[in-house]
C-alpha cells in the first residue's frame, strides 16, 4: 500500500516536471496564444477590482517608502536645479532660433513627437510581474480600445515600454527595464546614437550601448528615442520621446564603443497611469 503511494507520488512529480519543461520548450520565444489570452481575459476584471480595492493600502506603504527616499532626493534635485537653470537659459535662445528657422522652412508642427499622428489611449496599471527578470505590467486597456501589439507606452515623464500582447480588455507591456527590451535612441544635444538596454536588477539604471568612443557624452544630457526609418524597416518608437538623463559615461576597455548610463525619466517602479500611443507612423 505504502509502496503504491510512493510510486504514485513519484509519477505525479515526474509528470509535473516533464510538463513544465514541455511548456517551456513549446512556448519559449513566442506566447502560447489562445490559452494565455483566455486566462488573461477571464482574470482581467478580477485584477481591475483587486487593483482598485488595494490602492489605498499600496499608497500608504508607498508613502512610507517615499519618505525614506525624500531626503536623499532633495539634495540631488537642488544640484539638478542649478544645471537645469543654465540649460533653460540656453533653451530660450534655441527656441528663438528655432522659431526663426521654422518660418524659413514653413514647418507647421514639432519634429519630435508627431502627436497628431498618434491617438493616445490612457490606461491604468493593474498588475506587475513579481520578478525583476521579467519586467512587465498589465494595463486595463486592450484590443477593444484600439491597442495593438508593438504600440509604444509612455507616462507623463517619458518612455515606459512597448505593448507585448493584447486581449479584449487588457494588455501586457514589456517595460524598458525588461531584459528583452532594446530601444534605439540618441543623446541630445549632439545626436550621438545608440541602443538603450536595461541593467537587469536595477530599474534606476539604463545603458546606452554601441556609442562610438570618440563621441563626447557627459552627465545631464537628455536621451530621446531616435525613431529611424530605412528601406521599409522602421523603429517601433516615434522620434523624440524622452527616455532619460545621462548619469555617467565610460569607455569599454579594448573596445571602440562606450557605455553611457542613464536614469529613466519615467518612475518605472511606481507606474500607475500611462498612455498607449495607438495608430500613427513609426520611425
Amino acid at each position: 500500500m505504502y509502496r503504491k503511494q510512493v510510486r504514485r507520488r513519484r509519477a505525479v512529480l515526474t509528470l509535473l516536471i516533464i510538463g513544465s519543461f514541455l511548456l517551456l520548450t513549446i512556448t519559449y520565444g513566442h506566447s502560447s496564444g489562445g490559452l494565455q489570452r483566455g486566462v488573461s481575459t477571464i482574470f482581467s476584471p478580477l485584477q481591475v477590482v483587486a487593483d482598485r480595492a488595494l490602492k489605498p493600502a499600496r499608497d500608504l506603504i508607498g508613502w512610507f517608502d517615499k519618505t525614506f527616499d525624500a531626503r536623499g532626493e532633495n539634495s540631488r534635485l537642488k544640484s539638478e536645479l542649478v544645471t537645469v537653470r543654465r540649460q533653460a537659459v540656453a533653451g530660450q535662445e534655441a527656441l528663438q532660433e528655432n522659431a526663426q528657422l521654422r518660418k524659413l522652412v514653413a514647418l507647421d508642427r514639432g519634429p519630435a513627437l508627431a502627436e497628431s499622428a498618434y491617438e493616445p489611449v490612457t490606461g491604468r496599471v493593474i498588475a506587475r510581474s513579481p520578478t525583476v527578470w521579467n519586467s512587465t505590467v498589465t494595463l486595463d486597456v486592450g484590443s477593444g480600445d484600439g491597442v495593438k501589439v508593438d504600440d509604444p507606452v509612455i507616462s507623463g515623464d517619458g518612455l515606459v515600454g512597448l505593448i507585448a500582447s493584447t486581449q479584449g480588455g487588457s494588455s501586457q507591456v514589456t517595460l524598458i527595464t525588461d531584459h528583452a527590451s532594446a530601444v534605439s535612441a540618441k543623446v541630445v544635444p549632439g545626436g550621438v546614437q545608440g541602443v538603450i538596454r536595461p541593467d537587469v536588477g536595477d530599474p534606476e539604471d539604463l545603458i546606452l550601448d554601441f556609442i562610438d568612443s570618440t563621441k563626447h557624452v557627459h552627465g545631464g544630457q537628455t536621451v530621446v528615442t531616435s525613431g529611424w526609418r530605412a528601406e521599409g524597416l522602421a523603429s517601433l518608437f516615434p522620434p523624440g520621446l524622452p527616455v532619460g538623463e545621462v548619469t555617467s559615461a565610460s569607455i569599454v576597455e579594448q573596445e571602440a564603443s562606450q557605455q553611457v548610463h542613464l536614469r529613466p525619466y519615467a518612475d518605472i517602479a511606481n507606474l500607475d497611469l500611462v498612455q498607449v500611443l495607438t495608430g500613427g507612423s513609426r520611425g
Binding site: L23, A127, Q172
Partner: peptide, 20 residues
Amino acid sequence: FSIGFLVDCLLVAPLGGFSL
C-alpha cells in the same frame, strides 16, 4: 505548479518558468 502556471498565463510569459 498550479500557482506558477497561473502567473505565467497572466503575465503572458513563457509558460513553465514559474511553474517549474
